[in-house]
């Protein structure tokens, strides 16, 4: 059985207490709102993507549980300076990690620090907390008109 310690690793506790890249980005080229109707978690992500498709700056604000806050904090840290193509690769890897079989170890080479969130898959009701920010960022990058939801 997974223990609470697998979910609430120290890195997650730290990022929840002191989220990185927290706040509004003005001006920004892309932004989107994400919402988890089950929990009431609300998230807004902001990005500046340059002509070379590089994420020059990125931030988020909103309110949510420790998993959703830490996930957004870790995500923004991981993506600063990366390309949109790399975002797509990380999005797929993160999504796979959060929803894969328990026996399937996370691809730490691709995911790096983000692998600390792999514990969520043992807590099915919390998977959406970890993936909300990624879905929100995807709709920001794709300029989707509707707010992202995790359904």
């Amino acid at each position: 059985m997974f223990s609470l310690g697998d979910l609430y690793q120290q890195v997650i506790i730290d990022h929840n207490k002191a989220p990185r890249n927290f706040g509004k980005l003005e001006p920004c080229t892309h932004d989107a709102e994400g919402y988890n109707p089950l929990c009431g978690d609300q998230l807004h992500v902001y990005l500046n993507i340059n002509d070379d498709e590089i994420i020059e700056s990125i931030s988020f604000e909103g309110q949510g549980c420790s998993i959703s806050t830490a996930s957004a904090s870790l995500m923004t840290d991981a993506l600063k300076g990366r390309s949109v193509a790399e975002f797509n690769r990380l999005f797929a890897a993160f999504h796979h990690m959060a929803t894969a079989d328990l026996s399937d170890a996370p691809d730490e080479e691709v995911l790096g620090k983000l692998a600390v969130l792999s514990g969520v898959k043992e807590f099915p009701s919390r998977i959406k907390c970890a993936t909300l920010c990624w879905h929100t960022l995807k709709s920001a990058i794709e300029h989707a008109a509707d707010p992202a939801i995790t359904e």
Partner: peptide, 10 residues
């Protein structure tokens, strides 16, 4: 300092 969802899980 503890979000209700974290309380629920713990």
């Amino acid at each position: 300092g503890v979000h209700p969802h974290d309380l629920g899980t713990i």
